[in-house]
């Protein structure tokens, strides 16, 4: 007697694509930026990174097991690792360990697990954790160490970031001018103070190219954000070149690249179709520039993404993909 056959509805083949494969792809894309941070910040970057990833994994496992009492653990899908890495990327390399752990707890315990874990969180957990820390510990979160102190962690001396300089100029603080800004090339390769992962635009763009090549993300969100920021800041620069920095400097400084490439493109919290993605990217760009130029914080990326995350469901309802046969191409 032959085996009892399996019966199911079609299709009977699968693309072999998996959640894990996508998550691994993102992690690989993050490697160049991490490598740069190791070179630039040394041991500090390593401590922050390890603390963040380990505590994210721990909280996901512990909350799943002891609070939600689910039988299987979800740490295997690598999403908690990505949250940990992205959270670390958004932190200064001299942040005390206990603050990092608090951030991870907020990211996993408040922004992710209560909503049902992977796939259900309304906002990006890593960003939620970061913004929570930024509001709760503004001093620690905005003092970035000077680059090149490979062996120092908590005792590193700190310096102003390019964005802080720009903000200073806008606010009319005496003694700062746009001339103090580093060159675009320095910003591109990443030799300036800043959060761990955001300093090198080159490394982040390398990650973007990898993710596009592996078809993990599409170009719509990053390109629309970057283009919007470029155009908007370009106009502002033309209006008042003394107060507002050049668009290229704006693009390369702060968390814009990191946000546009890795945070805004988070599957769960971004819109589900191309048109929606473009709208989402456009508004993130606008909000970021508005906060940077007119708000009280020097950096607006995190807030912009979080705000647009909240609008994603509405965008999904408003934007529908182009249906087949809706507009006849030729009559």
């Amino acid at each position: 007697m032959e085996n009892k056959l399996f019966v199911s509805l079609s299709p009977h083949v699968h693309s072999e694509d998996t959640v894990k494969r996508n998550m691994h792809g993102v992690l690989i894309a993050l490697i160049p930026a991490f490598f740069v941070s190791l070179v630039v910040f040394g041991i500090g970057a390593l401590i922050v990174m390890v603390t963040s990833v380990v505590s994210c994994l721990f909280f996901e496992w512990a909350i799943g097991k002891y609070i939600m009492k689910s039988k299987t653990t979800t740490i295997g899908d690598c999403s908690a690792i990505i949250t940990g890495v992205l959270l670390a990327f958004n932190l200064p390399s001299n942040l005390p360990i206990w603050i990092i752990i608090l951030g991870a707890l907020f990211a996993i315990g408040v922004a992710k697990m209560p909503f049902g874990g992977l796939g259900c969180n309304p906002v990006n957990p890593a960003l939620a954790g970061r913004v929570f820390l930024l509001i709760s510990f503004p001093v620690q979160m905005t003092s970035w160490p000077v680059v090149g102190q490979i062996t120092s962690y908590a005792d590193a001396t700190t310096a102003a970031t390019p964005l802080a300089i720009m903000k200073g100029v806008i606010n009319g603080t005496s003694g700062v001018s746009l001339n103090q800004l580093p060159s675009a090339w320095n910003l591109f390769i990443g030799t300036n103070a800043g959060s761990i992962g955001e300093i090198s635009a080159a490394a982040l763009l390398l990650g973007l190219i990898f993710m596009l090549w592996k078809k993990i993300i599409t170009w719509h969100i990053p390109v629309s954000i970057l283009a919007t920021v470029f155009v908007f800041t370009g106009i502002m620069h033309l209006v008042n070149p003394v107060e507002y920095a050049r668009p290229l400097i704006q693009l390369l400084s702060g968390g814009l690249m990191l946000g546009a490439i890795f945070m805004a493109t988070d599957y769960v919290t971004s819109p589900m179709n191309k048109k929606g993605m473009l709208i989402y990217g456009f508004f993130i760009g606008v909000l970021t520039v508005v906060i940077r130029l007119f708000g009280s914080y020097p950096e607006g990326m995190s807030f912009a993404i979080l705000i647009m995350n909240c609008f994603t469901p509405l965008i999904n309802i408003y934007c529908k993909p182009k249906r087949f046969g809706e507009v006849a191409k030729k009559k």
Partner: peptide
């Protein structure tokens, strides 16, 4: 023949 294990939707679109 066997279908793969089902995971939660990650809304990858």
């Amino acid at each position: 023949a066997k279908r793969g294990e089902i995971h939660p939707c990650i809304r990858c679109a």
